[in-house]
Write a protein that binds this DNA or RNA. Sequence first.
RNA 1: GCUCCCUUCGUCUAGCGGUCCAGGACGUCGCCCUCUCAAGGCGAAAACACGAGUUCGAUUCUCGUAGGGAGCGCCA
Length: 468
Amino acid sequence: MTFRTRFAPSPTGYLHIGGARTALYCWLEARHRGGRFILRVEDTDRERSTAPAVQAILDGMSWLGLDPDEGPFFQTQRMDRYREVSRELLAAGKAYWAYESKEELEAMRAAALTRGEKPRYSGAYRDRNEPYREDPNRVLRFKNPREGKVVFDDKVKGRIEWDNAELDDLVLIRSDGFPTYNFAVVVDDIDMAITEVIRGDDHVNNTPRQINIYRALNVEPPGFAHLPMILGPDGQKLSKRHGAVSVMQYREDGYLPHALLNYLARLGWSHGDQEIFSIPEMIELFDIADVNQSAARFDMAKLGWLNQQYLKNDNPLEIARELAWHLHRLGIDPSAGGPCPVDVVIALRERVQTLKEMAQRARIWYAPISEWDEKAVAKHLRADGAADVLSAAHEKFVALKDWSPHAIHAAIEHLANEQGIGMGKIAQPLRVAITGTQVSPSIEQTIYLAGRDEALRRIDAAVKKAAM
RNA sequence: GCUCCCUUCGUCUAGCGGUCCAGGACGUCGCCCUCUCAAGGCGAAAACACGAGUUCGAUUCUCGUAGGGAGCGCCA
């Protein structure tokens, strides 16, 4: 039997970071075992499911490169199948019609709670054999075993045992004819031949109920692996308060998919001391059994570090493509003039952690200086001799045969020797002249990227400004 | 309230009874390098929640306690 995992989000919003990790682990485990990865959209909640959310999830997965081998399948297109299976259960005496109103159920729970018990369904209709009839309160309930226990070996949590006495008769088919989650998953996972259910550990409590449904259907349950939660940096549940929760927000914030994947993989899983994993390495080394059992906090600082690792080591050509996307967001069209984005990547990738920062810093080469750092002007432009140094540099640059970082560097060094001053005395005034600030990449890169004409113009302007 | 799950440096983690006065990474701090900012190099501070057992020996096994989380829906 081939190994099959599935990711089964409900389309009530974007793909969030927790869902992305679940998808990643399902995907990795399937790849690792040479199996198949299936995408199933659980849209039986007609109130909250939306088409844009479906699209958002698809977009998120595709940006991350987590492409399904099969699907997306939609539960709302499988209604006949759920009805069919529910009829089987009913015919086998493993399900029954119940007719309590919501108010009655509410009262039942409240009463149980005051007795110090779990708020559960009493099973009043369990043995009544009530026939089907049109009734707004009609639901089909599952006859959960009342004795014995359910035991399963969770791939990450270990052995989990549950007394059937703790479980009640859950609803299989709602009064509107739609299946409930617990029923639909089981039917789907059986039909889609899922061998390994990997999901968030908020589902641990549902697992015994689901296993009972498998048994009622005479099907051997799949393996289960329940992933611990991802917490916000403050240790609280991840929420919009924490900023980036949607996966696509990370794209906008300038992260590379590979960096996010690597971070997510390491959040809850590890392989010795290794921190950096290529995708093929992840596939080779990942094992769901090595996943940790406790919740982990999301740490932006480490994500940033990882992102920079990839910024520094990935092919600059590819990064330049991503950079162009961010430049456009800032209203810059790199094809309309200015330096080649590949050169910008090389100049900035050791100085920023995100592409967003990189694009912002790159502005100085694509647009005129918009704002002068007055402290920098006072300190470096109006310093003694700064204007002369700038003029001398201007001359050198005019005379340069070859406009390259190397040639520019040589010219500046030469000038330093001539004038008997340190590099700092030349580099800083030039930096302020070119960028308006005292922070930028190496001075030869900064000047080179401006282009000869623009560099000379800015130096001229700075000489004038120094005299003001 | 009940049931289930979790607990190693600030954070992510290694550790699967002795190799641990606990290793790595991010972050923090210091030094070096240096035209700024970074990157890089070197170094430092920093943890087994607590209490009982089991054992010759517990970070590692068992049970409690405390703390945290999840679930108890005609939501998924």
